[in-house]
Design a binder for these strands. Structure first.
Lengths: 298, 298
DNA sequence: GTCAGCCATAGATGTCTTCTATGGAGTTTA
DNA sequence: TAAACTCCATAGAAGACATCTATGGCTGAC
């Protein structure tokens, strides 16, 4: 046997309101026989008479009254679902869980935060910081919607969008001999003491990769836990380090005792991109966000 | 466009539980393509993507999660309706609003109350006392389900069942000359002072009708408001009255100073019946009640 | 590279809602 | 008292839509 249908409940409530089959049918945009027959089926299905049909008087039985009451609640809740869905229709609204690399987040966000609020006002960003591998895991598991990291990464099931190419810069103590140069070659780093982040930070590998040609010495027994740690170490004269350009600019860049110098061409860079699940329903919001960052990151 | 269907919500909840189209379909007793297509239609109708479809991973969007939550509530409530209906299926259960004439109620109920509780234990009787006309009104309006009164009455839209024929008896002061008779003829009432109920009581009209042949005098400036008032007046020697047989028996019948005597044949009687709306859904319970009264009233 | 798992699509089928037309009971009006 | 009207139920036809089986396509695993 068929089961309960919302439509039938609507018919029943319409009848309860009008106490008249014809007008209830009209209100339900169906013919009177349709409403009549469907309500009879509803009674058959429930095994209870809901309606007293008298020539000039339609009334509900006790069972009918109780069921109408619940039917109203159900119909209200079903309307809520529709309304709720309406609220979710705007692809540029709602929560978007965004993760950034620790070497990107604090330096990129100040550049785009204001524009974000203006251009995507209904997008509620939830911010997280993860290193590449945990970020990819949380992306796959659905914990976050989009990650901003250094490309390339393993892309199975993921889509990506290239945001910008970020030049590396060299950070040296202000008193260092390289501080007087306008720009620096990779070979100039030979025999320098290089300060690097701890394992897990992709920036560590990128820096090592850049310096693989030159004969540099990584400072032993030291692993910085953040770029700010590195910066302070450089200021203290312990060694030099490589900083992504964004990290060398703005409020953070002006640290005392540290001088930032660009590389000469070909400037080593890293590619920053946004990554999300191919199957993500937030693709549209993510692309809007990505394009905004692309345009205003640097 | 079609509207929300409970079945679709069931599919969605099944998918939320299993996170697998095939198993959700199995749990819903439909094929996988059916569930797939219906959920897509649901998304189209709501205008929101509810499901992230990835090769090895089915997940819900934020909208999906919220809607599933409400869908669960709706489905629970719809189950409640079915359960509620089940509880109303027993035609011999539930409330039954029963009205009796004031000249019947106190005398009939003691005879049947015990049997009622035993034979119709799930029937919850709500008792009322009304005179004939208000009773018929409340019957038509649906305020009460069944009335017990003296037939015949105006039967438009009503059904009736004859319960019993109630003989009238004569109540006289014990010191009255008629008290010594074994039985009484209507003509014996000639020149007696007759005590009657106030207007509105059908018993008043019945008594007047019976006595219309004899030359009796209704006590002026007096109208009893209940049979008990009349009985006390008789005991006080003010006059005589007619009592329905049930009112002359049992606990009430034994009042001091009052003697009850039967009429000789043809004994005047009134016909007591049950009356209900032709359209009433409680017909079955009413008939069961009526047959019980018919068997055990006298 | 092949295989298995899984969801989407296509086309056919059948159920069930819905319609119009009509019947029948009851009430009101001429 | 008959006729017209109101209102709900029934009948039969038409149409909409959910459902099925078969199949395709994509992905991840061995």
């Amino acid at each position: 046997m068929a089961d309960l249908k919302l439509k039938d409940l609507r018919y029943l409530v319409a009848l309860a309101d009008t106490r008249h089959f014809g007008r209830a049918a009209e209100r339900s945009f169906v013919s009177q026989p349709t409403l009549s027959a469907q309500l009879k089926k509803l009674e058959d299905y429930l095994g209870v008479q809901l309606i007293e049909r008298a020539p000039k008087r339609v009334a509900l039985t006790a069972a009918g009254e109780e069921i109408v009451e619940r039917a109203r609640r159900i119909l209200e809740a079903s309307e809520e679902i529709v309304e709720l869905a309406k609220g979710h229709r705007d692809p540029l609204a709602g929560q978007l869980k965004l993760a950034l690399l620790p070497t990107i987040g604090p330096y990129l966000l100040p550049n785009v935060a204001a524009r974000l609020r203006k251009q995507l006002p209904r997008l509620e960003l939830m911010l997280y910081e993860y290193q590449t591998d945990p970020m990819l895991e949380k992306l796959h598991s659905g914990e976050i919607d989009v990650g901003i990291l250094a490309l390339p990464v393993q892309m199975d099931g993921l889509d990506s969008y290239e945001l910008y190419k970020e030049p590396f810069t060299v950070a040296v103590p202000t008193s260092h001999k390289l501080a007087s140069r306008q720009s620096i070659k990779v070979d100039d780093l030979a025999h320098e003491t290089l300060l690097l982040l701890e394992d897990g930070h992709c920036l560590r590998d990128q820096a090592l990769d850049i310096c693989s040609g030159a004969d540099v010495n990584e400072k032993q027994n030291f692993r910085g836990s953040s770029l700010e740690t590195l910066r302070q170490m450089v200021a203290a004269g312990v060694g030099i380090t490589l900083l992504p350009e964004l990290a060398g600019r703005g409020a953070y860049g002006a640290a005392r005792g540290v001088t930032i110098r660009p590389f000469v061409k070909p400037v080593p860079t890293r590619t920053i991109g946004a990554v999300w699940r191919k199957s993500s329903a937030r693709r549209e919001a993510i692309l809007a966000l990505a394009k905004l960052i692309e345009a205003h990151a640097l």
